[in-house]
Design a protein around this nucleic acid. Structure first.
Lengths: 221, 221
DNA sequence: CGCATTCCTGACCAAGCAGTCATAGTGCCA
DNA sequence: TGGCACTATGACTGCTTGGTCAGGAATGCG
């Protein structure tokens, strides 16, 4: 038909991404067991058999969604080194993770559900990567401590705290929304981000870089 | 038969608690949808019909488990007032929550799963209680700030951070275990607790009370 | 046009599920 | 002894589910 000449992607690819989007939403909300292929198909506006045509099994589809999820873990912190400024580096890392919680809450939820279920679908490859990443980051933080750049804080628990307090805004959004009476908007996330940065950086004996400081008009009376 | 004369609880009560324990474990690991009544029955060593005899529906059983879960939220912080010492109060609160994550990880997971699923089973009563609690705690923290006892930190985000970074050790135990290579022991929890306290209290501009300080032999080289 | 590949789908099936029911054992009190 | 309440359970039912299959439509390409 006319009008679609610019889309050189095949109909198959288009359908696949469409299905993946619907699946992402469904899995994030209801978990693997709680999501039926029929529900995903309905959300994607396709017959169930068509979904099974592109992804042979529900497992395959879930694995594909999970793969996207793991891209969440990429960050500029991956490339940090011990000569970097800890305050700047950590603030940016927290900022990145908060932005992830805001813009991709469903992927965060899927990861959380996977962990809660005992992570049966996280393959050894990811585990190794993850462990390797962890060891590298821990070494850098320990170097910063040795150099006297920051307080002595166990790097493992520091990282867990950063993950927890940022992912929380995606995973526990339901709870937060109920307590606030409305969903967190972009400005709320900005405020939450500065608060988390303030807490953790000060907690490490670091000074919050000017760029990440609370802006004037956000001050309490 | 002989031997049971000291147990004045009826066989029914004994079975009920037995079933509840099995259900707690199963729901925490596989969620509501992912748990079959049969599985719970097997874990409890009873025929499925017997489980349904005590709890008419799977929903009922889940609700009963969830009710236990909500007891997690009780804390000595509930009774705090603005004349209390913020450092001492918050340190104790964090300590309590960490202890909950250590001793009742499954209940924490069930709560997390419930929230992730959109909290369809949290009744309005709990929501109201929870909101009321929140408002009370926020007021106290704001008073502390006004009194100059601690830095200006948005109380809401402070509380979220405390919840997140403590519950994390229950909900994400699988991830932590894989990264460490082994489960966290009691001593590890103690260290994690002091680290979280240090981070958050320093983050608020508070001094960690001596009792909650890292002990000497835990120091890094 | 002709053929192959990709795409699409209704009908169907076996398994697992929550929940019902009829039946039966058990302890207790009158 | 009879009756009642509680406890227990195998057999069964109706429904949802993931997945198969056979056949048909669209598309691209020589």
């Amino acid at each position: 038909m006319a009008g679609n000449r610019s889309t050189d992607i095949s109909v198959g690819e288009k359908n696949k991404t469409n299905i993946l989007q619907a699946a992402e939403k469904a899995f994030a909300q209801h978990g693997f067991k709680g999501t039926s292929v029929q529900r995903i198909a309905d959300a994607a506006g396709l017959p169930k058999t068509n979904v099974l045509y592109y992804f042979k099994t529900k497992q395959d589809l879930y694995q594909a969604v999970l793969k996207q999820t793991l891209s969440l873990w990429n960050s500029r912190f991956d490339l940090a080194c011990e000569t970097d400024d800890p305050a700047e580096t950590l603030a940016e890392y927290i900022s990145e993770k908060m932005e992830m919680s805001r813009t991709h809450p469903m992927l965060s939820k899927i990861f959380a559900l996977e962990i809660l279920n005992g992570a049966p679908n996280l393959n050894p490859y990811f585990n190794d990567e993850h462990l390797h990443w962890m060891q590298g980051r821990v070494a850098i933080i320990e170097a910063w401590i040795t150099q006297g750049k920051m307080n002595q804080v166990d790097p493992h628990y520091l990282l867990y705290t950063i993950w927890a307090s940022t992912q929380h805004y995606a995973d526990f959004a339901t709870q937060i929304t109920r307590l606030r009476g409305q969903k967190m908007k972009k400005a709320d996330f900005a405020q939450a981000t500065t608060t988390v940065i303030q807490l953790i950086l000060n907690g490490c004996g670091l000074t919050v870089p000017p760029h990440y400081e609370r802006s004037q008009h956000d001050q309490l009376s």
